[in-house]
Design a protein around this nucleic acid. Structure first.
Length: 425
RNA sequence: GGAGGGAUCGCAUAGAGGCCUAGUGCGCGAGCCUGGAAAGUUCGUUUCCGCGUAAGCGGAUCGGGGGUUCGAAUCCCCCUCCCUCCGCCA
């Protein structure tokens, strides 16, 4: 959420953000400004009436007899007028608040303006793309042959995009997540497990709602299933006031993640690349205000993910996302795409964003600065590792001619083996 | 699922229709005192919105939302969360 004052003073900037983020059919900034003006006018009248009412009540308490009765009649009249005005005020406020939830965060100055995926900018490519002297198999074929992935029965039991991991498949997933956990802990992050089901207000607070409501599951109690631990971790301090000396707060966590993948029916339907339920280790950082500091951390967090991929020996590219391909609340976003040999291209495995105070305003997370002034924290989040997609990348990049999988060096101690091969019957 | 008890200023507590403009203690800040400190002492100390250069003034705010009343921290209804006990359960 943006400060209404900011919207008033920078309406052209905000209107432009609506345009380049392709959100014109969701919010009209002129309408927001009109409602804001109207709200201000009504509020003034309501406050005047309340002042009068308070004054009358105070006087009444000091009077007796006829004078008292007379004033009570007058106060009753004021009360009636006030009730009408207050109803109007409330209606306007409700509408305004609802609209403000849809106002996007303008993108940072160095974000390319674009129309979609095709306008994202590849900043650099890292690592050597592996070459194979045999026909490469995709991760599903490899997984089925090794007996470590079963999507057929996964779909039977779990529906479309359902999957089972089995034996070494489970161990490989755990190894990736455990390595990710150890790496991010070594960077000084506190490590949490988190609620996977959250109140909708925290999905609104982190900016997933209202835009992404369709992509989330809800249960019969109205709770939402998180699509990422970012939701719970960023919300951890919701409604609280932090001390500046305690910042930055560096949180990481592991959770299952649930996504309906509503906009991607036909995409990536084979294998365990795009699934409704997956595991992820995520990092969240809370900072004092100031864009430079956020940008510094944005790069630093990207570095942690790169370190993770480099140590795994995977090649990847860094994408700077264009305006149309980033979230409404994000100032700037990098995706990391990891090389998938069977697809002969890089595919998204990581996402790194900063928000300034967009989330913290919605979540009401403040801190007291050195002068005792209350300010909103700046938030960032980034993927450390998401499985089974990343596991698919490992399978494909480390496949051998005989269909076995070499275990990346850093994972060997977690797996307790150097090679994944088919179980003999 | 059932039965009770709670939620008040940073923390702890008082408060039971108008003496609440929310008291007191602790903490915190400033001053006085002191060679310096401690102790003592005086004043200040929720947050948000509006007007104002400012001092200040007005409005809201006692978990949240409704209601009763001229007037609600206080009475009524609904909700959320926390605690105790019973049942069930990994």
């Amino acid at each position: 959420m943006l400060d209404i004052k900011f919207i008033r003073e920078n309406s052209d900037l905000v209107k432009n953000a609506v345009k380049v983020k392709k959100l014109e059919n969701t919010v009209d900034i002129d309408e927001v400004l009109r409602l804001d003006k109207s709200y201000g006018d009504i509020l003034k009248r309501v406050e005047d009436h309340r002042g009068l009412k308070n004054e009358l009540s105070n006087t009444i308490s000091k009077l007796t007899g006829e004078e008292r009765e007379k004033l009570i009649v007058e106060a009753t009249g004021v009360k009636g007028e006030l009730e009408i005005l207050e109803a109007k005020l409330k209606g306007t406020k409700t509408k305004l608040d609802e609209m403000l939830l849809w106002v996007p965060n303008p993108q940072a100055v160095d974000v390319p303006v674009g129309n979609g995926e095709e306008d994202n900018v590849s900043l650099r490519k890292e690592g050597k793309i592996p070459t194979f002297d045999f026909k490469v198999k995709n991760h599903l074929e490899l997984g089925i042959n090794l007996g470590i992935i079963d999507t057929e029965r996964g779909a039977k039991i779990g529906g479309f995009r359902g999957y089972f991991l089995k034996n070494d498949g489970v161990d490989l997933e755990k190894a990736l997540l455990n390595y990710a956990t150890d790496l991010i802990k070594s960077k000084g992050f506190d490590f949490y497990t988190v609620p996977w089901m959250v109140k909708p207000q925290y999905l609104v607070g982190t900016g997933y709602f209202p835009w992404g409501e369709e992509d989330h599951y809800k249960n019969q109690d109205g709770m939402g299933l998180i699509g990422t631990a970012e939701v719970s971790l960023t919300s951890y301090y919701a409604g609280e006031v932090l001390e500046e000396k305690d910042l930055p707060i560096k949180l990481a966590g592991i959770s299952s993640c649930f996504r309906r993948e509503i906009g991607s029916y036909g995409k990536d339907t084979r294998g365990i690349f795009r699934v409704h339920q997956f595991m992820k280790v995520e990092q969240v950082v809370l900072l004092p205000e100031g864009e430079e500091l956020s940008r510094e951390w944005h790069e630093r967090m990207l570095g942690y993910s790169e370190e993770f991929l480099k140590n795994l020996g995977l090649s990847y590219q860094i994408l700077l996302m264009c305006s149309a391909d980033m979230g409404a609340g994000q100032r700037k976003k990098y995706d990391i795409e990891t090389w998938f040999p069977s697809q002969n291209k890089y595919r998204e495995t990581h996402s790194d964003s900063y928000f300034l105070d967009f989330q913290s305003r919605r979540l009401n997370i403040k801190y007291k600065d050195s002068k005792g002034k209350l300010k909103y924290v700046s938030t960032l989040n980034n993927t450390v590792a998401a499985t089974p997609r990343l596991m698919a990348a490992v399978l494909e990049n480390y496949q051998q001619k005989d269909g076995s999988i070499k275990v990346p060096k850093v994972l060997q101690k977690y797996m307790g083996k150097k090679l994944i091969k088919a179980k003999k019957n």
